[in-house]
Amino acid sequence: MAYEQVKVETPLVLRILPVASILLFFGVWQAVVELKIVPNTMLGSPTQVMALFWEKLFEANPDGAVLTTHAYISIIEAFTGFFLSLIVGVPLGLLMGWFALAEGLARPIFELIRPIPPVAWIPLTIFWFGIGIPGKVFIIWLSGIVPCVINSYVGVRMTSPTLIQMARTYGATDWDIFKKICIPSALPMVFGAMTISQAYCWTTLVGAEYLAADQGLGYLITMGRRLAMPTMVLLGMICVGLTGVAIGIIIERIEKRLLAGIRR
């Protein structure tokens, strides 16, 4: 065998350092609160957050819902917005990349709307949809669609021109080339868009819920502020972070699966 599997050990120090770093972070945080360096009205300690986490799993008060409901609502909103942005954004970007007509029509409008931060749409959204789920989905959709369109567009644009010429010598029509060459070539970029778009959606979700919601993790943060409970704010923040990481990992797994046959 020319290629042998060998095990390369990471030095002990390098393996310990990340763990030590995290322990130190939480230790200092705990100490800062315990020793009243920062008053408890401004910051909750990690143990307090843990306790509230446990409590909120079963207790709907004071904000009106248990933690799992908040998380569930947020995930539903984020994913609905995310899927809608994929369904609209990817085909739009692909078409814009290949057909001059699509680009000419859609690009100016897209470029006009793109620089407006999705959160700036919140007031209008409240007029249109109220504070229910559809409004938040709309805002999330707006933020998720941007990377979908851009990545799909660039993906098609990066198609090898020689491959296109080759297909022409085989009598391929524009539509054939789009379907059989441009789309497969663009796929790695499109899957890349999934990761980016999901991250955008999740970020915007918290903003959307912060202003217009009655349930969801962002709403939990808002309620924490209104009730002057820094521990609840922190709990909301941590839950948003952890759920975001979890979704990110799942999407990355899916992306790797899908790309296994393409990226070589």
């Binding site: 020689t162 010429q165 080759m166 022409r168 010598t169 085989y170 009598g171």
Partner: peptide, 11 residues
């Protein structure tokens, strides 16, 4: 007047 299937090109 353009590419066509009557001519096969090997690159």
């Amino acid at each position: 007047s353009g590419p066509g299937a009557d001519r096969g090109l090997v690159f």
